[in-house]
Amino acid sequence: MALVNAFNASPHLAEIEKDYERVARQRTTYTFLLLLVCTISIFGGFYVAEEANSGSFWGGLSSFWDYPYDIFAGAYERGWGLFSLAAKYFPYLVETINIAIVSTLIGFFFSSILSFFASRNLMTNSLVVMVVRRFLDVTRAFPELVIALLLVLIFGPSPLAAIMAVTFHTIGALGKLFSESNENADMKAVEGLRSVGANWVEQMRFGILPQVLPNFFSYALLRLEINVRASAILGFVGAGGLGAELKMVVDWNYGADIFVIILMLVCAITAIDYFSSWVRHKLVGATGTL
């Protein structure tokens, strides 16, 4: 209605146009400022990074292909022997994937329980919500590598260090996503259950869980892929799996072995990625949920 009135009353038109121009100018200014900030941070960042780097960018550019070339040359020389290398490293890949699956499962268990205590609509005690949320924040922010390093010092080189480190981080990461999806859940089911005298656990079990479980599974599958990467990385500090082997062959510069391990890792990660997005599509019927 307002729009029609504005069009009918011509004196207002000039005013609207002026307003529009003012808003447009403001937008352009903001966009320009944002671009400026981005440009400055990119170039300034590159400058600082270049200063702190031990080699320079332009010096390194010419030798950029040397290392990939070495790897491919090593792999080419080996020829069919690559398959026996793949067979040799396959058990380590299985170990890495197992580390990821176990930590995702355990992390899923704890974070799904904690998420109910971190959701404002489900937990009336706001102190509990705050404490659990801060706990999740810390577990999420704690770099896995640090935990793995500490545990390797205590346990010695063992996959257990990787499992505990990845699990710890998974609890925080999933817990946050789960609690967000709890908060978006429809509360009518809970109200219905409360009206027939269900206790809190029953309300959660029958009112919320059936609504959010597909989301939970979807997030957990996404986590699985991230955790495969993480457990491969943690091998670098001695936490077992394919990463430990990769570190060894990188240190010794075995081109063929590096090639095979990287290829296996890339294939495994891509395969899990496609598998998980296929299952997620079945579960929640939409892609792109982060």
Binding site: A49, A52, S54, S56, G60, Y67
Partner: peptide, 16 residues
């Protein structure tokens, strides 16, 4: 991590 290994070979150790 693997990208960083490759880039470290080319550009040396550091944030770049």
């Amino acid at each position: 991590l693997i990208w960083s290994l490759i880039f470290i070979r080319a550009f040396g150790l550091g944030p770049l």
